[in-house]
Nucleic acid binder design. Structure first.
Length: 728
DNA sequence: GCTTAGGGTTTG
């Protein structure tokens, strides 16, 4: 029995509204929209291949492919495969062999992915075991699957050794090598480029990330204490201080940071760049930076570093055990085992010491009058107060124990909703940013995730701009000021959507929205704003030309987000039905292109306390709502033979999960994954898979290519074993 | 090939 996570073809049907994958297809004809499938797997529909293709689960590159003779060096000793034993400490050992077996990439609820492989030595004596199994977990497995081919010479290090359960059967080494996490490393020696002449290989080569195909150039790094004036050097360090970048009086942005390393010295680095994105992407104290080509200069009896021609930077999370994704704007960069080692050593060196200043990032719930702190938050609305001050309305999903000061601004100048449900207002902080920061928040949009550095909580301030004489600051009501200047790293920074802190913030703010029984006043505030002039439209909400991602951002803030366009006569109309016609939290809903009769929009009404939902809005638009379905293909086997059968019509009752939830909700996806892991254990052989009583129905479909009728089968009226059963 | 800033709490 085989559930195929990667490629599905939905059963053909005459039903007019077949469902998620058709919706996916329609939606992806343009830009190609990534969608969540199961667990953390992302994919998109490929129109050319008529299938759904999964993306790798991670962008980390624990697998390094090189075309020259360089091997992972450092302090690792290459040991023969026959020397591998559970009794030996292999921390500083590596093994090398040619890849003789590469198993399929198997999805796993615990590790995301598992892949089995085997390597073989060429020069061992006949008496010795010359091949050994590798078990790769997580991102390493998916990268290996993508980039490594049979015949490649593979060097593995950072492995754990365990008994091989298949040794008797496969006659390989009695142990296998388990590779996972930050320590594990695979180096692959690829045939030289002139061998890559066949079209297939050329195509494969093109798919390698730039980091993987670049020939590694050995870089040497100087410890901070050993730096001498007047040299251009490469340096690694832990960030102990950084300012937000600011515009210099010259032609560049200026970025100032201070780093330290195991030599126990600090050094200030000043980096000038014409573009913000070229600067190191430092998010917090403790991040690790790799600076290439910086020049040492004396200033007031201290040595400084300034970027020099050919400068480039990588930044890493400084936490022990965190993913080793280098942050950089460089299109190509070298990241070798040596880098991995240096970052790992710096991480553990810092972790064992009390040398970093405390991280002042606290949630709103911990804000106290008078304190300076960093706030990670989502921007909900923005408004200019005067020429030197802008109001940011933000939240982080926590509630400040102190009452928050209300700041009133002219409704016409608010970007984002003018008001929020009362339950939400209690969670929203008013942040006033002054002077140089006014410009840096100009490009921010409602929905963005930010970190505000060195924000000051101010109680009962009567001088808050935007307050009239009747609204003087109430004693102990907190407002938040971002004072002018860059002292203490003061400033605002947009956080990338994929950063862990943003994921956590989304979880908190979504939980808040689920918990509070909000009405839809914010939506209707936006909804009822008629398109007036083009200028007004451009500055108003929904957001002319907004991307799918921006719409999803907005959806995190509102109960319902309905993308519309203006139509002749000043009416509103839904977008082309290739796009979702409504976003509700993490869920998106599509309309059927064939069955919908889109009318001029009438304002939907809800009777009594009934919540306005996708059904009411679909009705108001004349949209025939598409239903999400799960589609899985099973291969069934008994003594009589095998049969392929789909599960779709009754998939929801089979898993006891709504397809709509499975499209947006991790818990629902996990439930499906647990059931599938039981039916089809990722590690188990076919003999270990359970026997199931299934009800099958045969149905006729038309073969798309030659128009002939064919018989298909689907699983119906069947439930997967209950939860209790699965936990036994 | 070499200008910029050179950390260290506020007008509000």
């Amino acid at each position: 029995m085989n559930a195929v996570p990667g490629r599905h073809r939905p059963p053909e049907t005459n039903s007019s509204c077949v469902v998620s994958y058709l919706a996916v297809k329609a939606n992806s004809e343009g830009a190609g929209v990534p969608l969540v499938v199961f667990g953390k797997h992302f994919g998109k529909y490929s129109a050319t291949e008529n299938c759904f293709v999964l993306f790798p689960p991670s962008t980390t590159m624990p697998v390094i492919v090189s075309e020259d003779g360089e091997r992972p060096g450092g302090r690792l000793t290459v040991v023969p495969i026959s020397h591998i034993s559970t009794d030996v400490n292999h921390d500083h050992h590596s093994v090398t062999g040619r890849l003789v077996h590469k198993g399929p990439l198997v999805s796993s609820s615990i590790y995301d992915f598992i892949l089995k492989a085997a390597i073989e030595e060429g020069n061992s004596s006949p008496q010795e075991t010359s091949s050994i199994n590798l078990v790769l977990l997580g991102a390493l497995a998916s990268d290996f699957s993508q980039f490594v081919n049979q015949g490649d010479v593979v060097t593995a290090s950072g492995f754990l050794v365990s008994k091989s359960p298949t040794a008797q059967k496969d006659k390989r080494h009695a142990c296998n090598l388990l590779l996972s996490g930050d320590q594990a490393f695979i180096h692959v020696l690829r045939s030289p480029p002139h061998d890559l002449t066949s079209p297939g290989q050329a195509k494969r080569k093109k798919r390698f990330p730039p980091a993987a195909v670049a020939s590694p150039t050995k870089s040497t790094y100087v410890r901070i204490a050993e730096l001498k004036p007047g040299a251009v050097v490469n340096v690694y360090g832990v960030v102990v201080f950084f300012k937000q970048p600011f515009k210099s009086r010259g032609s560049d942005f200026c970025y100032s940071l201070k780093i330290t390393d195991q030599s126990q010295q600090n050094i200030v680095c000043t980096i000038f760049c014409p573009k913000l994105e070229l600067l190191p992407q430092i998010f917090r104290i403790g991040d690790i930076v790799r600076l290439h080509r910086v020049k040492t200069k004396m200033y007031k009896d201290s040595l400084n570093l300034v970027n020099w021609f050919g400068f480039s930077a990588l930044t890493f999370n400084g936490t022990v055990g965190a993913e080793m994704n280098p942050r950089t704007s460089s299109k190509t960069f070298h990241f070798t085992e040596e880098d991995r080692r240096i970052v790992t050593e710096l991480r553990s060196w810092v972790a064992g010491r009390d040398l970093l200043p405390p991280d002042l990032t606290v949630p709103l719930s911990a804000a106290k009058p008078g304190m300076y702190f960093n706030l990670t938050c989502q921007l909900l609305a923005k408004a200019p107060v005067n020429i030197t001050c802008t109001l940011l309305r933000v939240w982080d999903g926590t509630r400040c124990p102190h009452a928050l000061l209300e700041v009133t601004v002219d409704a016409d100048v608010v970007e984002g909703p003018r008001s929020f449900p009362e339950e939400h207002e209690k969670l929203i902080a008013n942040v006033l940013v002054f002077d140089n920061h006014v410009q840096s928040v100009q490009q921010l949009k409602p929905g963005d995730f930010l970190r505000i550095f060195n924000l000051r909580a101010i109680a009962g301030c009567v001088k808050v701009p935007g307050l009239t004489s009747s609204q003087v600051g109430v004693l102990n009501h907190l407002s938040f000021h971002l004072h002018g200047g860059t002292a203490y790293g003061r400033g605002v920074r947009l956080l990338p959507d994929d950063s862990p802190e943003v994921q956590e913030l989304k979880r908190l703010t979504e939980a808040v929205q689920d918990d509070t029984n909000i009405n839809d006043s914010a939506l209707w505030d936006v909804w009822k704003t008629p398109p007036e002039t083009p200028e007004r439209e451009a500055s108003a909400e929904f957001r002319t030309g907004s991307t799918l991602q921006e719409a999803r951002h907005l959806a995190a803030t509102y109960r319902n987000v309905v993308p519309v366009r203006s139509s002749p006569g000043g009416h509103l109309a839904p977008l082309d039905l290739s796009a979702p016609f409504i976003f509700r939290g993490r869920k998106s809903f599509y309309g059927c292109k064939r069955c919908s009769k889109v009318a001029a929009i009438t304002e939907p009404t809800a009777d009594g306390d009934k919540t306005i939902d996708e059904k009411i809005i679909a009705e108001a638009f004349g949209i025939h709502l598409l239903k999400w379905v799960l589609v899985l293909e099973f291969r069934l086997q008994d003594a009589g033979g095998t049969l392929d059968a789909y599960l779709w019509r009754d998939a929801e009752s089979f898993f006891n999960v709504l397809a709509e939830d499975a499209a947006a909700d991790q818990e629902a996806q996990d439930r499906i994954q647990r059931t599938m892991d039981w039916i089809c254990p990722p590690e188990g052989s076919a003999g270990e898979r359970p026997w199931l009583d299934l009800c099958l129905a045969a149905y006729q479909t038309e073969d798309g290519e030659n128009g002939k009728e064919q018989t298909s089968y689907q699983i119906c009226h069947t439930s997967a074993p209950s939860h209790q059963h699965l936990q036994l």
